[in-house]
């Protein structure tokens, strides 16, 4: 039996005017580390709030740990840990006071489950007397995680825990999540950072309130329909402008130090043809190579598909 399951969940705001979630169904197995990947406004927070019993869905059914999110909300509230997107601890209370307070809120003590949070807590322990509001972003996030874990929840809901946090803290954070997964805790985590997708066992790509794809990151990447190429030259912005003019390209997107491109017709000599067409522009150090797509490539592809089907639908 899945630990979290959603069947045809929909949610609207403003009396139906704003659609937040459209007919969402998926399930998460016990002990799975599941990522919900999508930009702001995609519907991630609404989904989290429905699963944590904070919001009622307009339609559909969802269970967490076997309990219904509408009827049996009290049972769920005893069993889950939740870290909202915004830093939600008492800023005027010290690190230690926050932790002790949340321990009693969950009918437990810091001592009881200390072994679970120990690895994380030791990193913030030097600041235990500092008000939570005066901690740095990474420290706040660690404290919030400790507070969400203090009662050893069955399911952990983390809504954008790494937003606004620097790379170093983000990497640390994902390592912590791997450890928690090893403890058997089911984790649902959302993030707008596509590069974090590969750290999850399975992911759902969400945009405009719809799930575009659910699978393992590897599987999603394999489903990318076209051969993908990376291209670069000395002047990247003129190259980008030139590439956009070309009829033989299906898509052109910049990806850091390369531009990623796909061809309308995938023939073996397509790259050579491209190079020929670019010859006139005299790009220096032109380099083109086939690459494996990343989750961000997939996301962009699925987004364009979604936009097209919406346009056709209207």
């Amino acid at each position: 039996m899945p630990d979290v399951s959603l069947e045809n969940i929909s949610k609207t705001y403003n009396k139906g005017k704003t659609i937040a979630l459209r007919d969402i169904s998926f399930s998460i197995e016990k002990g799975e580390l599941f990522g919900l990947i999508g930009p702001d406004g995609a519907g991630k927070t609404s989904l989290f709030r429905i699963l944590t019993t904070l919001l009622l869905p307009d339609a559909g059914k969802a269970t967490v740990n076997g309990y219904d999110v509408v009827q049996q909300y009290r049972e769920i509230r005893k069993r889950v840990g939740y870290m909202p997107g915004k830093f939600s601890l008492y800023q005027d209370l010290s690190v230690e006071e926050n932790l002790n307070f949340f321990a009693t809120v969950f009918n437990t003590t810091v001592k009881e489950n200390y072994n679970l949070i120990q690895d994380i807590y030791v990193q913030i322990a030097p600041f235990k007397n500092r008000p939570a509001g005066k901690l740095s972003g990474g420290m706040k996030q660690k404290l919030a995680l400790c507070c969400a874990l203090i009662h050893r929840p069955e399911v952990l809901f983390l809504d954008e825990p790494t937003t606004g946090v620097d790379t170093v803290s983000r990497k640390d954070f994902w390592q912590m999540l791997q450890k928690l997964k090893a403890e058997g805790i089911t984790i649902l985590v959302s993030t707008p950072y596509m590069d974090e997708a590969s750290l999850c066992e399975r992911i759902a790509l969400i945009q405009n309130g719809s799930i575009m794809s659910i699978d393992t990151p590897q599987q999603i990447i394999q489903m990318y329909p076209d051969p993908l190429f990376a291209i670069r030259a000395e002047n990247m912005s003129t190259l980008l402008a030139d590439l956009r003019q070309l009829q033989l390209l299906k898509s052109v997107y910049s990806f850091g130090d390369y531009h990623h491109i796909t061809f309308v017709q995938n023939q073996e000599n397509s790259p050579q043809e491209l190079v020929q067409q670019l010859a006139q522009a005299q790009h220096l150090q032109l380099e083109i190579k086939p690459i494996t797509p990343g989750i961000e490539d997939c996301f962009i592809y699925l987004m364009t598909q979604q936009n097209e089907s919406q346009r056709n639908g209207n």
């Binding site: 944590t52 019993t53 009290r74 509230r77 939740y82 909202p84 939600s88 949340f102 809120v105």
Partner: peptide, 13 residues
């Protein structure tokens, strides 16, 4: 406003 109410609600309290 602070969002702490969210956490309090999602607790056995």
């Amino acid at each position: 406003e602070m969002g702490t109410m969210e956490i309090l609600l999602v607790s056995p309290t």
